[in-house]
Structure formats: structure tokens, C-alpha cells
């Protein structure tokens, strides 16, 4: 009888120990998050990196464009000095803006930083880009108008091929505007996507 009681006691103790261990397991699991945080961050980081690479390409191209503008409007078709200076300054300002905005994007490190903070930086980046486009497009339109209406007609070398130059510039400007807007829209969508996903998981 005593042996049977001892057996029952041992049984209960074992089951109690296992119950306690189940409790430990559930307590540990309750503290964990279900989504693979690392995986989500990697996905967000790769989306952000895609935009970063696009801005890097623009930045790398900028010095070449500045040199090209000098060769075209300073040597090939010598235009007025104010126009040339304005062109180079405009490109320099654009390049500087891209550089600082790229830095802001890089600081929104979704891979390791606080996601809410990263989201705020991305929203700031988006606002800056929108402002850049709102200012940039009118400036670009004014520059093309200045070039076609005043500079080319007053340039003796350009006067010889004026119709071709005019049409070439117009087609180039319109194509550039369309491609630029498409790229801009893709970039903003990418940012909106990242910000939206951060909102979902935080």
C-alpha cells in the first residue's frame, strides 16, 4: 500500500514538474514576437538600397553632365557666359541636393535602427524630393526656354542648324521630363511602400 502511495506520489511529482516546465515554455514563447524581425528588416533595407543606388547613379553622372554642358555651350556652340554659369550652378545645386538627400536616406537604416525613427526620416526624404521636383521642373522649363528663345538664336554657330537644334532640344526635354517623372514616381512609391510596411508591423 505504501509502495503504491509512493508510486502515485512520484507520478504526481513528475507530472507537476512537467507542468511547471510547460509553464516555463509558454512564458518564454509569450515574450517573443512572431514575425521574423530580421527578415522584414532585410526586405525593407533592400527596397531602400534600390532607391539609394539610383541616387548614387545620378550623383556619379552629375560631374560628367557638367563637363558635357561646358563642352557643348562653352566650346561647341559658345553661348553667353551668364547662361553657362547659370547652367553649371543649376547642375551643382541639383548634385548637392541629391547628395544631402541620399545621406538622409542612408541614415534611415531600417536594418538595425529603430523602425519608427527610420520611417520619420523616410517621410522627410519624400517631402524633400517632392519639393525638389516642384522647384526643379519650373527651373528646367525656364532654362530650356532661355536656351531656345534667346541663346541659340543669338549664337552664330547655332544659327546654321537652328531648326534641328530646336527640335532636338524640345524632344530631349520632353523625353527627359517623362522619364524623370516616371523615375520619381517609382521612387516615391518605393518610399511609401516601406513607410506603409513599417506602420503595419510597428
Amino acid at each position: 500500500m505504501e509502495e503504491k502511495n509512493n508510486t502515485i506520489l512520484v507520478d504526481s511529482r513528475e507530472m507537476e514538474e512537467m507542468r511547471r516546465q510547460v509553464g516555463l515554455l509558454k512564458a518564454k514563447l509569450d515574450r517573443e514576437s512572431i514575425v521574423n524581425d530580421r527578415l522584414m528588416r532585410n526586405i525593407l533595407a533592400s527596397k531602400r538600397d534600390k532607391i539609394d543606388r539610383y541616387l548614387l547613379r545620378l550623383m556619379v553622372l552629375m560631374p560628367f553632365v557638367m563637363v558635357l554642358m561646358y563642352l557643348d555651350f562653352g566650346i561647341l556652340f559658345p553661348l553667353s557666359v551668364p547662361f553657362l554659369v547659370f547652367t553649371e550652378v543649376m547642375l551643382l545645386v541639383a548634385g548637392t541636393f541629391i547628395y544631402f538627400n541620399k545621406r538622409l536616406l542612408a541614415s534611415a537604416d531600417v536594418a538595425v535602427a529603430n523602425l519608427v525613427e527610420a520611417s520619420r526620416k523616410l517621410v522627410r526624404f519624400r517631402k524633400r524630393e517632392v519639393r525638389y521636383v516642384c522647384v526643379g521642373i519650373p527651373v528646367a522649363v525656364a532654362w530650356v526656354t532661355w536656351l531656345l528663345v534667346y541663346e541659340f538664336p543669338h549664337c552664330s554657330k547655332a544659327a546654321e542648324v537652328l531648326p534641328g537644334l530646336t527640335w532636338g532640344c524640345l524632344v530631349g526635354a520632353i523625353t527627359g521630363l517623362i522619364v524623370g517623372l516616371i523615375k520619381f514616381r517609382t521612387m516615391i512609391r518605393g518610399i511609401n511602400d516601406i513607410v506603409g510596411q513599417i506602420e503595419d508591423i510597428s
Binding site: 516546465q21 515554455l25 518564454k28 512572431i34 527578415l39
Partner: peptide, 28 residues
């Protein structure tokens, strides 16, 4: 590995006392 959901916890490798108890339960 790229898409697997997890609980971001490894109950097979950790060495704290609670996890050792859990591992005992698992072994049984």
C-alpha cells in the same frame, strides 16, 4: 530559409536554466 516565419527564439541551443528545464521536457 528566406521566407520562413519564426519566433526568433532557439530553444535547442540556449543554456539558461529555464531553457534547460524546457529541453528536459522536450527530451521526455
Amino acid at each position: 530559409k528566406e521566407v520562413r516565419l519564426s519566433m526568433d527564439i532557439d530553444l535547442f541551443e540556449s543554456t539558461d536554466e529555464d531553457t534547460r528545464q524546457i529541453q528536459m521536457l522536450h527530451n521526455r
